[in-house]
Structure formats: structure tokens, C-alpha cells
Amino acid sequence: MSYSGVEKPIKWVKVHNLPDHVYFNHSQHVVVGGLDCQACHGNMRKETVARVMTSADLNAVGTNDDGLEENAVKFTRPTLTMGWCIECHRESGIDIAGAAQNDPDSYYGVIHQRLLTDKRTYQSYLEDDVVTVAELGGLECAKCHY
């Protein structure tokens, strides 16, 4: 058998559909946020047909799966809804102090420097010992809708 030379694209059925008025960028979450794929897409190793995972599926990731990290955030909202996004943004922390220690001129290092000049605000952020995505503006409308 030889290569036919005929090129035909594979038509994938897209299961993760966001409405047009939502801007989502993978690199913000994977490169910057350091999330693993399974945090939102579940354990795809077990699947034969792609599907949108339920919150329960995501919460189960890592509990029985070898080698997969468990999700830090336990979801209560249906996946791919705004509530789900917000739930995660509310609970996920950003280690800005650590970033500042590594390199004060890094992106979050600079953010940390600035927060230090407004200790009252910084303290209010640290009431739960963690600076969350939400506290840095992760819940604001125009972060995703524009």
C-alpha cells in the first residue's frame, strides 16, 4: 500500500463549546496558572469518546487514577458554566509572595511589590492565608467578556 497523497482533514466533534461572548485562553491557565489538562477535562485516559465531564468526574480525578494529581478545588457547579469558572477562581490561590522571592521583577513579583505598599488591602486578601485569583480581579466581568 502506498500513500495516496489525498489530504482530508479530520472533522472532530467539538464537545467543549463556549458561547461567543466568552473569551477563553488556554495558555493563561496552562502556562501561567500551571493547571494540568485533567483539572478541567477530566481523566481522558479512560474515555473512548470525548465528552464534557461532570463536576463529579473532575472531583474524582486522582482519587483512583494512578499518577494523576487530585484537583485542589472540589466543584459543585456544572462544568462549562460561569458558576464553575467562578468557583475555581474564588478558591484557587496565586503564590505571589513566592513569585516575588524567586524574582522580584517577575510578573507576580511586581504585583506583590505593589500590594506591599497598600498593606491594608493586602491584609484583607490574606485573611484566608491565600491570595486568590478572585482577589486579583479574576471575577471581574471584562476578564472574559468583551
Binding site: 473569551y23 495558555s27 493563561q28 521583577d105 511586581v110 468583551y146
Partner: peptide, 20 residues
């Protein structure tokens, strides 16, 4: 909107390069 789409894109570039 102050070209918020450009702001978000610009921030992301800085974040990915992990610089000010």
C-alpha cells in the same frame, strides 16, 4: 472598553514571559 481585549492580550504576554 479601553480596548480591554488588547489589555488582556498584553498582560498575558507579560505573564507568559514572567516579567514586569
Amino acid at each position: 472598553s479601553f480596548c480591554v481585549q488588547k489589555i488582556q492580550a498584553g498582560k498575558l504576554v507579560a505573564k507568559k514571559e514572567d516579567r514586569k
